[in-house]
Amino acid sequence: MATPNTPLWEVFIRSRNGLAHKHVGSLHASDTTMALQAARDIYTRRGEGLSIWVVPSSAITASDPAEKGMMFEPAESKIYRHPTFYEVPEEVGHM
C-alpha cells in the first residue's frame, strides 16, 4: 500500500521576547496539535524558543521569482525613502 502523505508544516519560532517569529524549518504532522508538539520536540531542543507558530505549507502564498523585477525593482529607485538621502550638517548632531 502506498504511504499516505502527511501534511507539511512550516515552523516559526520567537527566540527571545521582543523578537519576531522567524522561519526555522518544516515538519510533517497530521493536524495542528500534532504539528505544534512536533515543532516543540524538533526545533526547541536547545532552548531556541519562547513561542512557536506552525502554518500549513499549503497556506503560504509566495511571490513568483519570475516577477522579481516588477515586484521589487521599482523600490530600488526611491532613494529618498532612506535617511542617507538627506544632508544635515554635522554640527546639528545625530538625527
Partner: peptide, 11 residues
Amino acid sequence: PMLEEDMALSN
C-alpha cells in the same frame, strides 16, 4: 512510526 515521533519519544 515517523521521524517526528523518534524525536518526541527521545525527548
